[in-house]
Design a protein around this nucleic acid. Structure first.
Lengths: 204, 204
DNA sequence: CATAGAATCGGACACTTGTCCAAATTTTAT
DNA sequence: ATAAAATTTGGACAAGTGTCCGATTCTATG
């Protein structure tokens, strides 16, 4: 029947699915624009399609439904933010340098990606009501705790549970900084980093 | 024309508006049930009407629109939660008692009113996208910072900005505790209070 | 008791939503 | 070049939304 070897067929199918993945990523990145601006509750598929210059049917062709599309967007957030933190941390060693690296990376992200984080907090809140979002949220939070944990180890202040508690504390400050950045009182990098540094000093 | 004295008329009008306020409160308290369960994005006026045994027109008769109704609900949250904290704090004096009172009050509220706080965090998140919610949110947050501030004074550890930073830190832990309570791993009062106490010890 | 005004109801209204599909177009494989 | 498959389109569709209003019932006032 088939005129080509099975492994050829396999490779071909793989190429297809990889290409499809890339396309999904591109669509999701476009969708992010609308989601970041309008928020989960106020963004319709038509908003996304319009801002991304895509037809409505396309979204359904690449994503099963609205939830799957948003979930994909959140995964992209995770990849970008977490790997940025890990990189910043990997370059540092010694207590003060590690604290500085973390504080600086967080402050930079507040200034550059405030509206991305705003969307993240929106989705995390939705997960409190819609269980469909919980696995992705739990996954991201676990990664963030792991980042805190390695930072704690690098500063020689690793205690049991420091990842979990540290995440909650840092997140509280980080979210509040984001809120001020978005709703009225933006601060500069130095001010944000200083505040975060003082928190990390008492944590580690 | 009028056969009664003007102050009589005034008193009558006042009684009317007071009665109307009470009714609005009662409706809002009923609406809370639906909102707490379904969240801001997934609660329609029909959900509210059904669960509160009210007609759809009633909601429009007492509240200008959906936003006003939800805003009223959030105000009720503020009144209940903040006054509870203030009361708990007013009974205590001396460093350890104050820290204990605050930690206990917060832990109790996590256990008893987890889904109310879940709604609060939902609304606070909405405020990041819809400016209509920001004044109420800012008002509540200011009250919470004031509570932290007085607690700091009572423990003799008042520094400039302790209310703001303290709020961000405590809120981070409080929200995370709420999340665990709601999505899977509920803890008992002692465990919650202990964690919060250790945070307050380092803050104050 | 009569009656004006408030309170309540149930449904109409215009609009938006997510989902889906048949047809048209483009890409790929033979 | 031709057939087959993948992609893209534009719109249809039903369900759900907030808002609003005429008709009805209740309540208090004279």
């Amino acid at each position: 029947m088939s005129t080509v070897a099975p492994d050829k067929l396999q490779a071909r199918a793989d190429r297809k699915t990889r290409k499809r993945q890339k396309k999904k990523d591109r669509i999701a990145r476009s969708a992010m624009q609308a989601l970041q601006e309008l928020g989960y509750a106020n963004t319709s598929l038509r908003d996304i399609a319009a801002r991304a210059d895509l037809s409505l049917g396309m979204l359904h062709y690449y994503f099963e439904d609205r939830t799957q599309l948003i979930l994909h967007c959140v995964s992209l957030y995770k990849a970008a933010f977490i790997s940025g933190l890990e990189e910043a941390l990997s370059d540092a060693s010694g207590r003060e340098p590690v604290i500085n690296a973390l504080a600086n990376a967080l402050a930079t992200s507040i200034i550059e990606d405030a509206s991305t984080h705003r969307l993240w907090y929106d989705i995390r809140g939705q997960a409190m009501f819609d269980p469909a979002f919980r696995p992705v949220v739990a996954d991201i939070e676990a990664s963030l705790m792991a980042v805190i944990e390695t930072a704690a180890e690098k500063t020689g202040s690793a205690r049991p549970g420091v990842g979990e508690l540290g995440y909650a504390l840092i997140d509280g400050v980080f979210r509040y900084q984001m809120q001020n950045q978005v709703t009225g009182t933006p601060r500069n990098h130095e001010s944000l980093a200083n505040e975060m540094r003082s928190v990390l000093e008492t944590l580690f």
